[in-house]
Nucleic acid binder design. Structure first.
Lengths: 226, 226
DNA sequence: ACGCCGTCTTGATGCATATCAAGGGCAACG
DNA sequence: CGTTGCCCTTGATATGCATCAAGACGGCGT
């Protein structure tokens, strides 16, 4: 459980808030509400009118789209410290384009649009931060479209693993993923079965080794070459 | 050929410039350069450092990505009056993520970053316009990802046609496309063969009728239902 | 420890779309 | 007026991934 003094710190270290003057920060933070979301609960439905954006303080949140037939596509997985739906602040009739569901028990901070926009209006630097933020997000989306159209499932999986490699305490490379595999599969736009088969293939080829929800990288160089 | 007095008008009516004070507009416009691009010429290569963005004044420009094997994906087709690469203004080390190629003989306006950013820094309203602009673009990208992952080729084609319906002088609905079909196919992320077959299928079903580079909508209601 | 349930794997089959190959229309050009 | 080249179409075939259908594994409560 987060201390009452804990969550403003999470907000403070978010890069959209990092450089604010103390009283500007204070004015926005006053209106922020902490929301506890149990694992599996959908706390934002696509199509709802939006009057706030969110910062994830603890846990993990998936953003997804649904087809008419119920098919789900996980657009993004939001880790603690990251935000989502900021882009809606600047839309004419803001409506959430995606649904947000907690994957693990989570704590999210709800930042209402009005005070945040008011703060932006009087802080040029924060405006530019926000522009840079949206711009970076656009860039990520372009890469996503590139991956979907020019790469196959195997390449997408490899790129995903490489994007998550970190170094283990013992010095071995590990791709750390805290999410269930069907969520990862949807994030990569493939079926769980395909995900499973590809993991098996890469394992048989000696490039990786599954380890619970993580993947040990056995041959980083070869993985990068593919 | 555009008059020397013509191109500032195009710039002026672009929504990022529409509400500027005359002297602010003037200061940016002074630095804008007109570039003539013959059909087929690629005037921006992905990977190049970027120090400007572009507004298309005449003709038509495609933005595309290339795979290692040479496969091309047309991300977007820019019509006169529209701009592209504005998001790069706010990146740390701006590099074009896509290539830009004229489809028809075109005239593009090159708007250098530095004076434009300087203008933004002293115009709060323009900043918010830009935020709204990027935000809208993000939204479009989300729809694009949705289309790629949750819809099949036929649905994407139908949605594309519907997005282009306009009314003809004689009152019949027409989807107007000025681009070669292989470009359209790539924009819709399918092969030209698939595009051709789908057009044939919709024609056989009596929903549309091809007419040169346009498509006459024979049964709008049925098209919308699919 | 047992059985239950949800998640993950594995195999068999099917389908949408890509790929390969060949012909047809049309405009530019000699 | 034929030729050339380019797009577009059409058909035959290939393939990657989805779908369907069973198991296997693993956590969890009783």
């Amino acid at each position: 459980m987060l201390m009452r003094t804990g969550w403003p710190a999470v907000l403070r270290t978010h890069h959209l808030f990092l450089t604010l003057e103390p009283e500007q920060f204070e004015r926005v933070a006053r209106e922020v509400r902490l929301v506890r979301v149990p694992a599996g609960e959908c706390f934002v439905q696509a199509g709802e009118p939006a009057d706030a954006f969110f910062v994830v303080a603890e846990g993990s949140v998936k953003l997804s789209l649904f087809a008419a037939n119920g098919d789900e596509k996980v657009l993004d997985i939001i880790a603690p410290g990251q935000s989502f739906a900021e882009a809606l602040l600047f839309m004419q009739a803001p409506v959430f384009p995606v649904s947000a569901t907690a994957i693990a028990d989570s704590i999210v901070l709800r930042v209402p649009s009005v005070p945040f926009c008011a703060m932006l209006a009087e802080n040029r630097a924060a405006c530019f931060k926000m522009l840079a933020h949206l711009s970076a997000r656009l860039h990520v989306q372009v890469r996503e479209i590139e991956a979907l159209t020019l790469e196959n499932a195997r390449q997408r999986l490899i790129r995903f693993l490489l994007a998550r490699v970190g170094t283990d305490c013992k010095g071995t490379s590990i791709a750390h993923t805290g999410e269930p595999r069907n969520v990862l599969a949807s994030h990569l736009s493939m079926q769980p079965e395909t995900f499973s088969r590809l993991i098996k293939a890469l394992t048989d080829e000696g490039m990786i080794r599954p380890d619970g929800r993580d993947f040990v990288i056995e041959d980083l160089a070869r993985l990068q070459r593919a």
